[in-house]
Design a protein around this nucleic acid. Structure first.
Lengths: 330, 330
DNA sequence: TTGAAAGCGCTAACAC
DNA sequence: GTGTTAGCGCTTTCAA
């Protein structure tokens, strides 16, 4: 079963391959009658243009790369869905790459990606700090970062201001009652997000003249945060715990309940990411609904603009979260 | 910033482009001295072979397509991780496609995918029935199906025998006590899996001479299975509920507890898919640990064999699950 | 409006 | 061992 090429169609229709090319690209300068002939031939032969050859001739691939951290598809999944929906509209394919734990530097991965000749790349980052991402600006290559705020000639970003979200929340709590103790729980998997959250609480406390308050580091001897909280939560000096992922908040929630604490009366718990599981635990988990689908969709849209050389008014796009109170907070 | 091509390298090194090609492809017939020159030139110019052009010349793209149902990345994520890890070894790129709810027939999607000139495709299916997948055999194109048992000249499959898993479990229960009532909960999102599960219970019951027993259909007026169970679970005639996803089992679990039933004493609940959330609810959820990472990894490995024209001893690869009892079953 | 031909960057015979 | 050259399938001037 030989693949049918543009030559076969041309021969079948009795025209030149240039004409066939014009027809499949919808150029207007083809006489209606000729177009008909070509279309009949295309149908008859079941011809599909070879995207690879088109890519070579046009110097572009109509595909973009998506780079995500490994194994975290729970949250990333929504981002990917948003991204794919927009990509479909603009007829881009998505090539998926994952960043395995510390095997390669971001630079090496991006080198690999660029070599594969995609037209652009979207990086979802919840781990790398700004300085690690700085190398990206050396590439003369369209890049969109999800998670961090940064921009450059060929870099745009889409993000939620986590630091501000946590700051606002903390402020609200300690304004009501200056002795109220708010703390962020370390998320070992997401260094970057952890730092953002930590900066948020600490900024609030600093304004009250308190230093280095509001951060719970999970000691490395604990493999699971559940074990840590089981050991410590009864004596925790905090009234309000902020976790990144739902699973961390649930771990704290379970430990608290099992150690005889009442949530939210003795201890309030909240997580940033809103997932369906937030509604499945008891008490139901309050959260910031971070618009993950939108993060993906907006990123892809921005990238298509960059690829089309459209002017982009803002290369640092902040999306807003929605505080969603449920039963785990007062 | 012009892209550097093989010609530039050839000129820089003072050799022909054929020699450069040999060097980058690691062919042995290049004199060491020449190789050095070429490598120096490559480094100096920062040359990377253009994968698109290589694809054209070689008639292959070294990328494969992955087709998954939309929005279900929770479980699919592990499959993707397995797949990517193996893909990396064999230097394949993965182009991600999703199957939106009923918009297009599988045939149309696969047509699109083939047009993009990937070397093969892996389809994760939890929805389509065998007959819907049958159209795939018309393609002269390497396909691996995850989920269903099927094979053909250019089709292989990797799956867990869900029907058997459910059958075995049901048998065990009703052998202990013939009056024990086991039921499978409909999963509207995963028609195929639902049918497999249903067939499993019903086969067991049929061997006892009981027809059409053991299946709970969630009426369409209920948007969430939680609401359905809240209304009905107190009067449920069943002792043992089998769900597909963790979220369904958790819904039943919560409803049961809230309606005053004790799990597992009054009612046992179990789900097929093992996720971290199984350990986070109380009582902890028993499950079949379906090896999702392995499903992905094995599929990719099989596909690489098909692409390399290696002989494959078995095109229908069954992976085994591991029953993982926790606190929600006796 | 259509066709001829060059070129996109690379591989692989085939010569030398 | 290395160079020459003909494709791979398509787009796009430039002529006709």
């Amino acid at each position: 079963m030989k693949r049918v090429t543009i030559y076969d169609v041309a021969k079948e229709a009795g025209v030149s391959l240039a004409t066939v090319s014009r027809v499949i690209n919808g150029l207007e300068i083809v006489r209606e009658e000729t177009r008909q002939k070509v279309e009949v031939a295309i149908d008859k032969l079941g011809y599909k243009p070879n995207a690879i050859a088109q890519g070579l001739a046009l110097q572009k691939s109509t595909s973009i790369a998506l780079l995500v951290p490994e194994a975290s598809f729970g949250y990333t999944g929504q981002i990917i869905n948003g991204l794919i929906d927009v990509a479909k509209i603009y007829k881009y394919n998505i090539v998926l790459h994952t960043m395995s734990e510390g095997i390669l530097e971001i630079k090496d991965i991006v080198d690999e990606i660029i070599k594969s000749r995609v037209d652009g790349v979207i990086i979802y980052n919840d781990k790398l700090m700004e300085k690690e991402l700085a190398v990206l600006s050396k590439y003369h290559f369209p890049i969109v970062i999800i998670g961090n705020r940064m921009s450059d000639d060929n870099i745009a970003s889409v993000f939620v201001d986590i630091e501000k979200a946590v700051y606002d929340l903390t402020m609200e709590k300690i304004k009501e009652n200056p002795n109220y103790k708010v703390a962020v729980i370390q998320d070992r998997i997401n260094d970057f997000t952890t730092q953002e959250m930590k900066a948020g609480v600490q900024k609030a406390y600093k304004e009250l003249g308190i230093e280095d308050e509001g951060y719970i580091e999970i000691p490395s001897e604990y493999r699971r945060s559940y074990d840590y909280f089981t050991d410590t939560i009864k004596e925790t000096p905090y009234n309000f715990l902020i976790a990144n992922r739902d699973s961390q908040a649930i771990a704290a929630l379970n430990a608290a309940k099992e150690q005889g604490l009442s949530v939210p009366d003795d201890l309030e718990i909240l997580c940033l990411i809103d997932s369906k599981y937030n509604n499945m635990v008891r008490p139901r988990l309050s959260s910031f609904a971070i618009p993950s689908y939108d993060l993906g969709a907006v990123s892809m849209r921005v990238l298509t603009k960059m690829l089309a050389n459209e002017t982009i008014d803002d290369r640092e796009i902040e999306l807003s979260y929605l505080f969603t109170p449920r039963a785990s907070t007062k």
